[in-house]
Design a binder for these strands. Structure first.
Length: 241
DNA sequence: GCGACAG
DNA sequence: ATCTTGTCGC
């Protein structure tokens, strides 16, 4: 498990963070289809927090896209680098997520993260940000519609409807299980929306959330528990070094 | 101006 | 995100 420090030039205020988003958004690539679903690697990333101790743990789990078997995984821990502000989530998660991705022993292929990409107040959510910084194809899968609107998709798995910012389709509400609340898919970088939705369906043979998200979620929670235990153990044993 | 609002 | 056990149901 690698440890990360927040970069020295990390934005300190909401204003600075928004300026960074406005600058980086010009580098998002939206005209590539992305890798075909069911081939190569698909990597889930997620983070867990311990606000009490100001610790954040990130996990990256690489799956074989065809079998959904785990191929590799990595974790990283660090300090929380920004408060939670709607629209600025990426600044809270990215340093640690980048460290976890960087610790992987193989290429991640397509990256699937929690939250949004294009579906964002300035069209530059976590998935877009992560894509621009890594150059990798990235999509976002969120559990809530944020401030966007949508019509309920059909009740069957595979149904979807546009996620709308006014008239603009910024993502899609995708039903991954019959009769279960949809997930909210948006493009991050170098993947088309249709392809992103196809990936999400390929990653949900059994549960509402993609296997990538589920694997990364449980791994980063475990990493957080172990990071906490390590630190308290060190404190209790001043002679142990 | 105020409230809502990914995780 | 996180606080949190058992429990109802397929």
């Amino acid at each position: 498990m690698t440890t990360v420090r927040t970069p020295a030039d990390w934005p300190a205020t909401e204003e600075e963070a928004r300026a960074v988003q406005d600058e980086l958004r010009t580098r998002v690539v939206l005209d590539e289809p992305g890798p075909p679903p069911g081939t190569g690697h698909v990597t889930g990333v997620d983070v867990a927090y311990d606000d009490e101790r100001d610790i954040v743990a990130a996990a990256a789990v690489v799956l074989d896209a065809a079998s959904l078997d785990v191929v590799a995984e990595a974790t990283a821990v660090g300090r929380v680098s920004f408060p939670y502000v709607p629209g600025l989530l990426a600044f809270r998660e990215i340093p640690t997520v980048l460290a976890a991705l960087g610790a992987l022993p193989c290429p991640p292929g397509l990256v699937v993260c929690d939250g949004y990409g294009l579906a964002h107040p300035r069209r530059f959510g976590l998935a877009s940000h992560l894509g621009v910084l890594t150059g990798l194809p990235v999509i976002g899968v969120a559990k809530n519609p944020f401030a966007f609107t949508y019509d309920e998709p059909g009740a069957r798995r595979g149904s979807s409807s546009p996620l709308l910012a006014g008239e603009e389709e910024v993502g899609r509400a995708v039903r991954t299980r019959d009769g279960v609340k949809p997930v909210f898919v948006s493009v991050g970088h170098r993947v088309s929306l249709g392809n992103a939705c196809a990936h999400v369906l390929a990653l949900t043979p059994r549960y509402r959330l993609p296997e990538t998200t589920r694997r990364a979620d449980s791994l980063c929670r475990r990493a957080l528990r172990e990071a906490t235990v390590q630190e308290s153990t060190t404190r209790r044993s001043p002679t142990s070094r």
